[in-house]
């Protein structure tokens, strides 16, 4: 359907309408509208690329309406085929918009994936930096870097005398340990309890074990798997200071947390 035939059709229609009134004003308007719609889709290179079949059908229907408009008494047929032509033009436009949206969405999806990857990398980097920072904190908290590995000592102020329950003042350091273990999923710990020499051997052994277990329980409650935690009680053995003075005894009442290396290798128990 060329522009030329379109014009000729319109001329014929106009002539026909004025001479016989065959197509009528209604059908003439429908034909013109369909022609205008078809013209628009036909000139749109995207529509031609994406929905050529619909454009062809719009043209065919329009040509038919055009042809019928030259016959007497065909008004309703003209309107019908003009209607079909308009519909095909509209469908062509919709299909085109849809396809263009899909092309756009495909590009956006690639962009989204690229950004997601970048975000993951940046988050990972920040976690690594955070892990490094925490590690420095833990190392700073741990007073002894002995042949047993990295050892952190929780002093006896974290427990009431004779009690195995961990006081709230221990929360801060416990949370740091949990975070550290979460950021270093291969590391494991051994929690060792110690007492001073006051009291009976058996009681001290039990108290030291209970206190170490209390720390282990809190770690587990906060999400560290139990298989990453060993618990030992040594009673009054391995004192770090003389039991003669109160100060020395206070030093000896403690819980020590021995960290493995990054690969999970833990020094042997005493």
């Amino acid at each position: 359907m060329s522009l030329k035939s379109n014009v000729i059709g319109a001329l014929i229609l106009a002539g026909c309408a004025s001479l016989y009134g065959c197509a009528g004003q209604h059908s003439e308007a429908a034909l013109q509208q369909a022609g205008a719609d078809f013209q628009k889709v036909k000139e749109d290179s995207n529509v031609l690329r994406i929905a050529p079949k619909d454009v062809i059908r719009a043209g065919e229907s329009l040509a038919r309406a055009d042809r019928l408009s030259t016959y007497w008494g065909s008004g309703s047929d003209v309107v019908h085929y003009a209607y079909l032509s308009q519909r095909y033009s509209e469908i062509a436009r919709e299909h085109t918009t849809q396809a263009l949206n899909e092309e756009r969405a495909a590009k956006l999806e690639l962009e989204r994936q690229r950004l997601q990857l970048a975000l993951r990398e940046s988050k990972l980097l920040s976690v690594q930096q955070q892990g490094k920072w925490l590690e420095e904190q833990i190392v700073a908290l741990a007073t002894t870097q002995t042949d047993r590995g990295l050892v952190m000592t929780l002093g006896d102020v974290l427990f009431d005398t004779g009690e195995a329950e961990l006081k709230n003042s221990a929360n801060r350091v416990v949370l740091k340990i949990v975070q550290f273990l979460q950021l270093n999923p291969k590391r494991v710990v051994r929690i060792e309890g110690y007492t001073d020499s006051t009291g009976g051997k058996q009681e001290n052994l039990k108290l030291s074990r209970d206190r170490a277990q209390a720390v282990a329980d809190v770690l587990m409650d906060l999400g560290i798997e139990d298989k990453r935690i060993q618990v030992e009680g040594y009673g009054d053995e391995y004192p770090v200071d003389a039991n003669a003075s109160e100060r020395g005894r206070a030093q000896n009442r403690r819980v020590e947390i021995v960290f493995s290396d990054e690969k999970g290798q833990l020094g042997a128990a005493r």
Binding site: T97, Q98, N101, E102, R104
Partner: peptide
């Protein structure tokens, strides 16, 4: 379908 493609975008 066009509307759906718009929503997706």
């Amino acid at each position: 379908l066009t509307q759906k493609s718009e929503e997706q975008v």
